[in-house]
Write a protein that binds this DNA or RNA. Sequence first.
DNA 1: ATTCGCCCTATTTTT
DNA 2: TAGGGCGAAT
Length: 674
Amino acid sequence: MQAKSTLCQIPWNQLNPQQREAVGVLSGPLLVLAGAGTGKTRVVTYRVANLIAHRVPPRRILAVTFTRKAAGEMLARVRRLLRLPKDQGPVVGTFHSLCLDILRRHAQHLGYPKHFVVYDRSDQLSVIRTVLREVVTSGPSFRPADLAAWFSTWKAQGLWPQDASARASDPRTELAAVVYRRYQQALRLAGAVDFDDLLLLVLKLFDEHPAVLQQERNRFEHILIDEYQDTNPPQYRIIRLLAQGHCNLCAVGDDDQSIYRWRGARVEHILQFQRDWPQARIIRLEENYRSTQPILDLANRVIGFNRHRHAKQLRSARGSGPRPRIVAFADPEEEAQAIVSQIAAAVRSRQARPGDFAILFRTNDQIRPFEAQLRQLGLSYTVVGSTSFFDRKEVRDLMAFLQLALPPVNDVALLRVINVPPRGIGTQSVEWLLEQSVQQNRRIWSVMTDSQLLAQLPPRTQKALGEFVRWVEALQARARRRKPSQVLSWIVDTVQYEQEIARVSRTPEEQQGRQMAVQGLLETAAAYEAQEPRPSLRRFLDQMAVEDRTFAKPGQNFSPDEVVLITLHGAKGLEFSRVYLVGVEEGLLPHRHSIAEGQAAVEEERRLFYVGITRAQDVLTLSYCRHRPYRGRKKPCVPSRFLYEAAGQAQLAQQAAAHATQQWNQETPSAEKP
DNA sequence: ATTCGCCCTATTTTT
DNA sequence: TAGGGCGAAT
Ligand SMILES: Nc1ncnc2c1ncn2[C@@H]1O[C@H](COP(=O)(O)OP(=O)(O)OP(=O)(O)O)[C@@H](O)[C@H]1O
């Protein structure tokens, strides 16, 4: 274990004996299966560092994390542990960023342009809408969002349209599979891929091009993966294919924290690790360094109600602390008002800082009253995972313009801004373009630049289209070798976007809000440029598509001055000193849809509750409301069965469950599922 | 092209 | 309830 003087030893004293054992295993398959807060992520981080300390070149190590934020933090920690400079370090990323990177290098093998675009959800929906217009549907029509969910479910199982068709057992599913096929064709024509395609296309690439698989296999000597319990089948296959040569695969996870079954994740992947890798070492971690014992007692009690699990008990290394509280409120307004004023009081008396607090909830619409209260009391806060900024019209418009700067021209982006600000290309003209594009199976852009075709149009429209085409060409020329923020400023200037904002705004406040959004996007671009050694517009758009879009300095935690608002799903892997887990009611947690779906879904809700509880380091407060508005009406609610389970009242828990099951089975029409 | 107004439905969780 | 989407009117 002689390290060269430039290489540091890792601080072994920050690990317990089991962690040391795991970190010390330098080759072969390794599984760390352990409960919440037992230091699994620390094992991955230190193990990466230890491999580097043992002369494994950093770029030959791949660490896969669940979120982009987790990736940034892990990379920053590894660098700090080894005092590595900014331009060195292992490859750390999510499955989606890893796959995007692979596809960028090999897309031509699949017949995609090298610079394919990644469609986000709303691009996806707009493609589905277009496709739906050409597909005859008898019976109840499909809603685009539902179809998107079907496609995603299929893709999470690795099914392409022909597979989906083959399996369809009823006419409606068959029809959906037909739309699925047309959707994929439309994406292909547009030179676009959606989020799930990133994974499936990598598998296709590996299946059809063994040489590429070999090349990608050789790239890494070691693979580590965090949150392994939440991998879906395509992700699982990718990892197995990549690790098969060297078998240096370290997976880390907790079956009790598997919360993405609804998105196709399979907890079996972690449970069958030993079978997949017969030589695997399995290490368990027992001690929890995060929470006090009373919090863990509650967590242990609740998760014990799940039938299908590997039994584990969490033991606190931190000892005792205040008992978790369960509080009832009249309605969400009161809940928010009471909790936020408690936080404000603690902050005022300097017992705690805003950043010590996190408010965890099941569904996004629970945020509202909390945001309102926080604003009212003048506390700053951050909504983790919020996309509201990027959903703003101004931001979407400008992002669409930016995409036009890079060929191949993205059809969805093009259609979005083709008449923004109004430039005489109205619905008539757009209809005509769409029609030509469908008939001739060509991209919109190719129709727009075909002077013969355009001759059919009235001169006014021809002129307008011609001018826009010339503007886009100027934009593309301009965008070469310029930074995103420069391109963006040029766009804002030349389309006179600010004048457009002034024109459409009805009040000064509205105008200011819109201007701020533009400003915000400029700042986002600047933040990206500050973070990236060689910024480019392409990289910026890629990152905006699949990565964390805040471009915050990695390794930097949440601001100590902001209360954190976050969903239970978003909170996985995080920790906070004081946690409020709100809205713990039958119908919300467990969610009514899960109750209607059955026991497996309810067990997942219980795991979600368990994840929430185990985020708390010091103080945990669970709350529920007696009434909550649902579909515009105030409805009475009862405490969640999980609260009774937490209190050890199995009997009452069962009563609550039985009652709710009956209620939600009646009221919830069963959702269509392929 | 824009705006008004009516109707309808509802996101559970997200890379 | 409220917000979005769509059709009709200006
Ligand atoms: N050996 C140790 N000694 C002291 N603190 C530790 C040790 N290992 C981990 N920790 C701390 O315990 C907390 C939980 O660690 P970590 O996030 O790695 O756990 P985890 O098992 O990944 O948790 P989860 O499953 O909930 O995501 C962190 O604050 C970490 O810094």
